[in-house]
Design a protein around this nucleic acid. Structure first.
Lengths: 226, 226
DNA sequence: ATTATAATATGATAATTGTCATATAAATTT
DNA sequence: AAATTTATATGACAATTATCATATTATAAT
């Protein structure tokens, strides 16, 4: 069992407020696990009973809509916690979490985390701020979905992916999503997404090499996204 | 200055966790105010420096998008608090709050509320649960915007308005929104909203009497909304 | 390596939604 | 009460987006 004290990732999450003794306690009750690309961490409707701390990798938070399509609500990466909302509301998960890359995550059971809430005010405050950040983000995405065209949202999403997850040495977006997943982020049909990507390619804003996407003209995308 | 202790509305918000002494302290530093229909309580980008407790009335939380349209993100009614997110994140407001009816609100300054966070764990937990509820709601609306048609969203919104704010003796929706505001909730052009309302009327799902909307066939709307 | 399967791409077309113009009705102002 | 402004309504049309069909390419399985 690895030590939470020495885990660098902890520094990036709400857990940074925890003291040495708390970290030692946590290390004892946590469960480390490997999650392979495509595997489900938890599903919508499931009782999670704790939070997952992402040590490495990226996952998508999705919700299945009546038309059978998965909407991606949020991408979560290394250093962030999963399942906080569900735990605090004491409700089943509202979203599913699915690995987009091979991941390393630690599960910390609910009663452990809830204990920290009572003992450690900084920790509560950190969690609260994170959730407030998520709420702001969700509101902003909501407005974008309501008021922007698919093309605008696509341009914005490409820039977001570059900024948030970076690029490879060949300049392609590091986080490789399928066309279907990109469509699920911007809220459109897969074919529309593919078509608009082709258009952006024709307009020399991006380059498409197989699954890889390379942003050539950042300013053009910015202009399209508004 | 009215007493917070005797304010019934308090019972419906996070503030119900506060004890007598805390309520007395709060009553001393709060500011009561009347807000007329159409007036702005606070605006996007503004520093709020406290929370508003809604004693009576309903307001809309909106965000202006680049195309100049106001998207309504949420409706807030009697018993709820405004400006919590902004206060906790220590950021300017992300949304504007505008009265949809004549309102009575109390302003409680930031330092007072922040004190309660440290002293009273139940209060923190209540606030956290409220924000978690808001986040879930925002995620659900987001998925609806991404995956449902305007017609489906309109049907859903009419049912939501009935359920949340009730109906008048003549069966019309109690909360009277303009067509523009309804359009701002479902994320569409005002003309599209008007046209689809007319369609629903032709299909005998609703009745339109001036600004008033009466739901005739609830099941039909439910079927449309999915 | 070959086959099977899934992902990407594109055309054709239909459906949805937005925009602009204009009419009518309602609310406000003078 | 008349005039002005604003909100609602509807037609005509354009733009956007979804759907279905069908290639083509990439990936996985045998």
């Amino acid at each position: 069992m690895s030590k939470c004290e020495q885990c660098i990732v902890r520094e990036f999450s709400s857990l940074k407020a925890l003291g040495k003794d708390e970290l030692l306690k946590m290390a004892e009750c946590k469960t480390s696990m490997q999650v392979k690309k495509g595997e489900i961490i938890f599903e919508e409707g499931e009782n999670v009973n704790g939070v997952f701390c992402i040590k490495d990798g990226v996952c998508k938070m999705t919700k299945l809509s009546q038309n059978g399509k998965d909407q991606i609500v949020k991408l979560v990466k290394k250093g962030e916690l999963l399942g906080q909302r569900s735990m605090i509301s004491d409700e089943p998960a509202n979203l599913s979490a699915v690995a987009l890359e091979d991941m390393q995550v630690c599960f910390i059971p609910k009663n452990e985390i809830m204990g920290f809430f009572n003992q450690n005010n900084n920790f509560s405050m950190n969690v609260m701020k994170t959730i407030c950040g998520d709420l702001k983000e969700a509101d902003d995405i909501l407005v974008g979905l309501a008021q922007k065209t698919v093309r605008e949202r696509l341009a914005y999403t490409l820039l977001y992916l570059e900024e948030t997850f970076g690029i490879n040495p060949d300049k392609s977006l590091k986080l490789q999503l399928s066309r279907e997943e990109i469509a699920g982020m911007i809220g459109t049909a897969t074919e529309s997404c593919i078509r608009l990507l082709s258009e952006l390619k024709k307009e020399n804003a991006i380059e498409l090499i197989g699954k890889k996407i390379i942003i050539i003209d950042r300013n053009k995308l910015l202009r399209i996204a508004n």
